[in-house]
Structures are given as C-alpha cells and as structure tokens.
C-alpha cells in the first residue's frame, strides 16, 4: 500500500492508503478527524467539503493519494485552540444557521472558501456558491444570513423567514 503525506490543519500527517482510499476516509478513519462528514458519498451534498491547497473540494470525490504534498484544511482548524469560534461559526450560531448540524462542516468550509475569494458577496452570490451544499433541514435562509453577517454586512433587510 502506498504511503501518503500531507499537511492537515497545519500539521504533518501521513499514513498508508489503498489506491481507492478517499481523502475523506483518510481524514476520518486514519487521522480521526471526524468533523468532516460523509452525507451522500456521491459528490452531491457537500457535507464533506474541505480545502485542498486553499480550494474547496468534495473530499468524498478525491483520492487520498492525490493529496500527496497538499495543504488540507478541515472544519477542525476553524475554531481557535481555546475553543473560540471562527467568525463564520459564530455567525452560524448567532443566526441559527444550523438545525441538525450534519451539513454544517461543509457549509462552513464552503462559506470560508467563498469569503476568501469574495469578501463581500451578495445574497445571490452566496446562494449560487452554495449550489453544491445541501441542507436536508432546508435551513438555507439562515445559513445565507449567517454568511452575510460573517462577511460584516448588514442582515437586517433579510426577513426572518
């Protein structure tokens, strides 16, 4: 079995993988980073979104071997070591952007990727960017609101639907 090594959340990580080992399996099962969720396992739902070299990707649709040498960032890296939430996470909490919470790791990582490339997105841009993130509680409204708030924009115009 080939060995892969990468940087995960700023720390070196390595392990044995099969050719078919998915990045999400390596993160969850080899490294114990279970914050990244597997929802559909078919690249539809986005619960497994992580950042690879700064880009949001679906970790259920990428092989671990392909992340050799990459910088990987997961939901576990978002909060401060003392537990202080990342501004996006804090906004999700403040605006009730999560219900069951299963999709939340992917939503937060997608939101972080969006804000990195577009620091002040419009509501429409946020909704478009989240096309590949599905919330089965259908809580999109407050997710969008949370991301707008996390970007420092006024959310008072958005109705509390």
């Amino acid at each position: 079995m080939p060995e892969v090594s990468m940087t995960v959340n700023g720390k070196p990580a390595k392990g044995q993988v099969e050719g078919r080992t998915l990045l999400v399996e390596f993160l969850r099962e080899s490294l114990g980073l279970t914050g990244t969720h597997v929802g559909c396992d078919s690249s539809q739902c986005g619960a497994c979104v992580v950042h690879v070299n700064g880009r949001a990707v679906k970790s259920c649709t990428m092989f671990a071997a392909e992340a050799e040498g990459a910088e990987v960032r997961t939901i576990e890296s978002m909060a401060e070591p003392d537990g202080t939430l990342h501004p996006i996470q804090a906004a999700f909490q403040a605006h009730h952007g999560l219900q069951c919470g299963f999709c939340t790791p992917g939503m937060v990582m997608s939101a972080a990727a969006l804000l990195a490339e577009n620091p002040k997105p419009s509501e429409a841009e946020i909704r478009e960017y989240l096309e590949g993130n599905i919330c089965r509680c259908t809580g999109y409204h407050n997710i969008v609101k949370a991301i707008l708030a996390a970007s420092g924009q006024d959310v008072s115009a958005i109705a509390a639907e």
């Binding site: 986005g46 990707v57 679906k58 997608s110």
Partner: peptide
Amino acid sequence: IGDPAVRNR
C-alpha cells in the same frame, strides 16, 4: 459546470 467544489477538481 456543476458547483464550485466540482469546478475546483
């Protein structure tokens, strides 16, 4: 095409 994460791969 697809969604942002798909377009990144």
